[in-house]
Nucleic acid binder design. Structure first.
Lengths: 170, 170
DNA sequence: GTGCTGGCTTAGACTTTCACAAGTCAGCTA
DNA sequence: TAGCTGACTTGTGAAAGTCTAAGCCAGCAC
């Protein structure tokens, strides 16, 4: 019946309880996966955060083949995560750079969360690279916080209906 | 040459600068993507956080077909993200429940980060569901913080070599 | 002009991910 | 013993993601 609270789950409250009573149509996570569902897309975004802007560097540094790199860059531009920007170095012809837009840059927490999990569970020798806070030099990690600035653990969370919840999903 | 600092990138420091000088072999994010690279895996994990434990509920609530659900559940068990647990309700035969392990549960920030990004950029009517902190009722969001407890923005971050960095990657 | 280089595109093949439809199997109920 | 149900499995086929290898094109250098 799944009515008793369980470890590692969030509590469903209000119209969302019980889980059997609604469909997760329009789930934002599912939508986000529609945009960045492939390994290649996330690796290209990683490189963009590392400052890479050129086609062949993306391909080389991610280890992704050129056709896939081209297709992925085009998709990411079309979805507004990257923007093409012409530039010209002296003595060179005009070229296109790919830069993160605000929309793309805000995916950073997703990448950091994946990296952190990989560091913890898949990197027996420790993290290959670490993020630090420039001002204080301390390592950076990802956290759940509420608007009242409390750190929030998984077992302290409720899931509630939001403003965008489809009305028909009884 | 990519030597000047740019918007929406992190600063590479020490042996990691310039980017051209090293390979991202063993990247924890890439490793994590090796475990949860598919849409179906993440949707199944979402349901597990919502308290779902039974095969047919996973299939119904994620909208994933039964063959794929079966394959994905088996993979997630093999990778140690879910654990099978026999249970028996009165008058029923013994069945298997799927529950999140610690390893699986620690992927929660990844899902929340994806959800938050989807809410912001792909949900014009607002978030369909919201996470709140049970004690205070305030909405919960994901944040980057350093060990000294400062909130850290993308442009305040350095990327440094970590203990698990492969020595040969000059 | 001829060649070189960066930034792609095309062709062909293989693998993975998915859906739909149907079949299997164990054990409880009647 | 005959059916029902939950939990899968099998078969088929389409779509997506990936690779290697090769080709194309624009514009500077010569």
């Amino acid at each position: 019946m799944e009515t008793s609270p369980q470890a590692h789950t969030i509590r469903l409250s209000g119209p969302l309880s019980p889980r059997a009573g609604w469909q997760a149509t329009g789930c934002s996570m599912a939508r986000a996966l529609g945009v960045v569902n492939s390994r290649s897309a996330l690796l290209i975004l990683r490189e963009a955060f590392y400052g890479t802007t050129r086609f062949d560097h993306f391909a080389q540094r991610t280890g992704i083949s050129e056709p896939v790199t081209a297709a992925r860059l085009a998709e990411l531009v079309e979805e507004g995560l990257l923007a093409r920007e012409p530039y010209r170095e002296p003595g060179q012809r005009t070229r296109l750079a790919y830069r993160l837009t605000d929309k793309g840059a805000e995916l950073f927490p997703v990448l950091v969360a994946l990296m952190e999990w990989g560091d913890r569970w898949l990197a027996p020798d420790g993290a290959p690279v670490v993020l630090t806070h420039r001002d204080c030099g301390e390592p950076v990690h990802i956290e759940l916080r509420c608007a009242a600035d409390h750190e929030a653990n998984l077992d302290e969370l409720d899931l509630e209906a939001g403003p965008g919840r489809p009305a028909a999903s009884a």
